[in-house]
Design a protein around this nucleic acid. Structure first.
Lengths: 112, 112
DNA sequence: TGCACATATGAACACCTCTTCAGATGTTGT
DNA sequence: ACAACATCTGAAGAGGTGTTCATATGTGCA
């Protein structure tokens, strides 16, 4: 039996996905897996920051539906918000989300 | 109907993914957004290749459920299969899928 | 050919999700 | 304080989804 390589062992353990983690990952994907929410997110990817009414306009759904959708995305940490007077601006929460959206677009482009 | 920043909305809508593309992207994410399917995919990410019965064992669901899940993933081009006798081995379809699964894990790790 | 095995399929049902409607909350300007 | 505005919230119904059960297909071996 070869000697244990601590770094490699740690790296290997990192790769293991527990049922709980998989469930949380599924939850993340599930939130992206709705046409309205997906369009909202890609709108934010392009625009950087938009308020609810602009998002409703861009995606062509009622502001109520947008508000409901954004609440799910916000509580999941996928988007973040900032208040300016009575309007509230939303943006993608972090670089990982942006990369995720970009990468999946690549996938679609190359696989048809 | 709330007021909207017309110029910004127009500029965003121009570069925006089309509703059709967003719908297809949502469809992709939706398929990843189920605990059973997610666990199957991450099992394949680790193992490389597994047959239906091994997947059922690993994820602890009936092989019928696995078969149903794999059909969705297969017709969507997320997994590919190979027959060896009466057993059928499944694997992730391409590098994009692998990157998508990896990247989302990163997101979860860093955002808690 | 006949049997056991691995996987696939179709229908049915319980469960969840998204949208809509009506109304509430919080903010700005007069 | 009031009215107009932007956003949020809760409830309810239509529609979609995943699992299960029973059965079918296809493969290898005797």
């Amino acid at each position: 039996m070869p000697e244990a390589d601590a770094a490699r062992v740690a790296a290997t353990r990192d790769r293991l996905v527990t049922p709980e983690e998989a469930t949380r990952l599924a939850e993340l994907f599930r939130l992206l897996g709705d046409p309205t929410r997906a369009r909202l997110l890609y709108a934010l990817l392009e625009a950087g920051e938009l308020c609810v009414c602009d998002l409703a306009d861009a995606v062509e759904v009622t502001d109520t539906a947008v508000s409901h959708a954004l609440r799910l995305l916000r509580t999941a940490g996928i988007v973040a918000s900032r208040r300016a007077g009575r309007t509230i601006y939303y943006r993608l929460a972090d670089a990982h989300v942006r990369m995720l959206l970009d990468l999946s677009r690549e996938h679609l482009k190359e696989t048809g």
